[in-house]
């Protein structure tokens, strides 16, 4: 379980979160839904250790990851995978090298087996020798997802991974996300501003507005929410 307690975080002089609390259940796909500037991405970055809060505690399975301004566990030791909105593939590496980078194996043969196993899983094994600029938008995102789960993380954080894709690709990659969540028993936190995307994939949805959770629950519960902001947000 991911436990966020009493988090306060500023961007310059603007408070993104003030004494923010929430919990994310283990092995669940939770969606953070909200408009731009609501704090969705910042929350993911705080969990990953890419942002340091001014105050508060982030705990995963009773291990304190962040306590106030101290990163008790550095980002690379958190067993967290992160998929960025624009994939953030390293442009000077091929897809193979991008996915292999996190592995600390000594034997190239073992690395190759692991990398191609996962590329195969996502149907992009033929892209192994290609550079990021030679890939389509969908292939880039799949390669980014492959890289993020190569170390079999406990948690997968996804920051609007489908926002730049067409409807067909969105559907295809959503299916992959559900598949890896079940296959690897992952806790997934998925950020989106598209409620259709959230309803299609999430086990639980958190609707965020100005650094506060307006409502949370299963997709069915959110659809029937009595919260004014949620009702307004779902209209569009």
């Amino acid at each position: 379980m991911i436990n966020i307690k009493n988090i306060t975080h500023y961007y310059g002089k603007t408070a993104v979160f003030k004494d923010f609390d929430t919990n994310f259940k283990a092995e669940t796909l939770s969606c953070l839904l909200g408009s731009s500037g609501s704090g969705k991405t910042t929350l993911l970055r705080l969990i990953a250790g890419l942002e340091i809060p001014e105050k508060g505690i982030i705990r995963v399975n009773d291990i304190i990851f962040t306590e106030n301004t101290n990163l008790k566990v550095p980002p690379h030791k958190r067993k967290i995978g992160f998929v960025f909105q624009d994939a953030a593939l390293w442009p000077h590496f091929t897809v193979y090298k991008n996915v292999a980078f996190p592995l600390s194996e000594k034997k190239e043969k073992n690395i190759k087996t692991k990398v191609y196993e996962i590329l195969d899983f996502f149907g992009i094994a033929d892209c192994g020798n290609k550079y990021p600029h030679q890939l389509s938008g969908g292939q880039k995102q799949l390669a980014a997802v492959a890289r993020s789960i190569i170390l079999k993380p406990d948690i997968l954080l996804m920051d609007e991974p489908l926002s730049n894709l067409d409807v067909k690709l969105k559907k295809k990659i959503s299916e992959y996300i559900l598949k890896i969540k079940n296959e690897f028993n992952l806790t997934v936190i998925y950020v989106t501003h598209d409620h259709r995307e959230a309803f299609a994939t999430a086990d639980e949805i958190f609707v965020l507005n100005n650094g506060k959770i307006e409502d949370s629950g299963t997709p069915e519960q959110i659809k029937k929410s009595a919260n004014e902001y949620v009702k307004y947000f779902l209209e569009y």
Binding site: A48, L50, P75, F82, F84, D86, A88, W90, F101, P102
Partner: peptide, 14 residues
């Protein structure tokens, strides 16, 4: 260099 490029490496290594 876009911050995400370095951040995505920092999630795996020091």
């Amino acid at each position: 260099i876009k911050p995400e490029i370095e951040e995505s490496a920092l999630l795996f290594t020091g």
